[in-house]
């Protein structure tokens, strides 16, 4: 760096007034067949980037990102599942030595040890040799860690019923139209609506939805009169004819829902996502 008297600056700034020539650095002594980064190598990098982007956009176009039903904190039947890249941690917590009273081992102990070792790898593996054969301990531990992460992820993925989970998707939500002209609708409004909701959608914490119920007309009539689970008996006040209309209404609404639901269901989240162009098969988070 130039120092001393006689330096001229642009105005009152710290920029030197004497123009330096725009000469590239001299790499003539640099070993091997080098290539300037700008512009030669950057153009090739862009090429790779473009190919990658095409593959990525194919993935995006082929698999719209999933969205499930709006969060319902009262939904007790929901089985939580993290994103695929946390599945190995999630699976770890299922082992006996890493759950219940030992859960700290599973949540902090083992992951902390593994990621801590990863962070401090240069200081744990501090010999100068760089070849894998010159540092067998580090390489073995890493191979072990990678294998166990892949194994745990695989175990976790294999244990999930993906077809059942696809039911959670908003696209597979039964899109039923409530036929308000149906004779049974008025019976429903008088007897059931206060707990099961205006559109049979259920009320969180009070009563379940009545779409997708597995009962036939007789079953529904029996439940309406005698109750089931937390539903007490004798909630239905009406004639037998009205009871028939009610059961008919609920069964009809249900059969509609099934029809439209399965149509959409086949198209959307049922299939596994293809591995994308860089050969990764791990994106099966669908």
């Amino acid at each position: 760096m130039q120092k001393g008297k006689g330096m001229k600056f642009v105005g009152d700034s710290r920029i030197k007034a004497e123009r330096q020539r725009n000469v590239p650095k001299d790499y003539s002594e640099y070993p091997g067949r080098t290539e300037p980064f700008w512009p030669n190598f950057l153009l090739k990098e862009w090429l790779v980037g473009a190919v990658f982007l095409i593959g990525f956009l194919c993935l995006v176009a082929a698999h719209p990102s999933p969205l499930e039903l709006q969060a319902d904190p009262n939904n007790a039947s929901y089985i939580p599942l993290p994103d695929w890249y946390f599945l190995f941690l999630y699976e770890l917590l299922k082992y006996e030595f890493a759950s219940a009273e030992y859960v700290v081992i599973g949540t902090i102990g083992i992951p902390g040890l593994a990621f801590g070792a990863l962070l401090l790898a240069p200081f744990l593996d501090n010999k100068p040799g760089r070849r894998p054969t010159q540092r067998p301990v580090a390489v073995t531990l890493m191979l072990l860690a990678v294998t166990s992460v892949i194994w745990l992820t695989y175990e976790s993925v294999a244990a999930v019923d993906w077809e059942e989970r696809a039911q959670y998707s908003v696209e597979n939500m039964a899109d039923v139209e409530i036929n308000t002209d149906h004779a049974g609708y008025e019976v429903y409004a008088n007897n059931c609506m206060s707990c099961h909701g205006e559109n049979l959608e259920g009320v969180p914490g009070m009563a379940p939805e009545l779409i997708g119920v597995p009962y036939d007309a007789e079953g529904i009539m029996d439940i309406a009169q005698n109750g089931i689970g937390e539903m007490p008996a004798g909630l239905f006040n009406g004639t037998d004819e009205e009871l028939n209309q009610l059961a008919e209404f609920i069964v009809e609404t249900n059969s509609e829902g099934e029809g439209s639901g399965s149509e959409e269901g086949g198209e959307s989240e049922g299939g596994e996502s293809d591995s994308e162009e860089n050969g990764e098969g791990e994106e099966e988070s669908a």
């Binding site: 499930e68 709006q70 969060a71 939904n75 939580p80 994103d83």
Partner: peptide
């Protein structure tokens, strides 16, 4: 996205 998946996975994460 505040869907069921998000909510319950986060609950597990917070328990951890």
């Amino acid at each position: 996205p505040w869907d069921n998946k998000a909510f319950f996975a986060t609950q597990v994460g917070l328990e951890i």
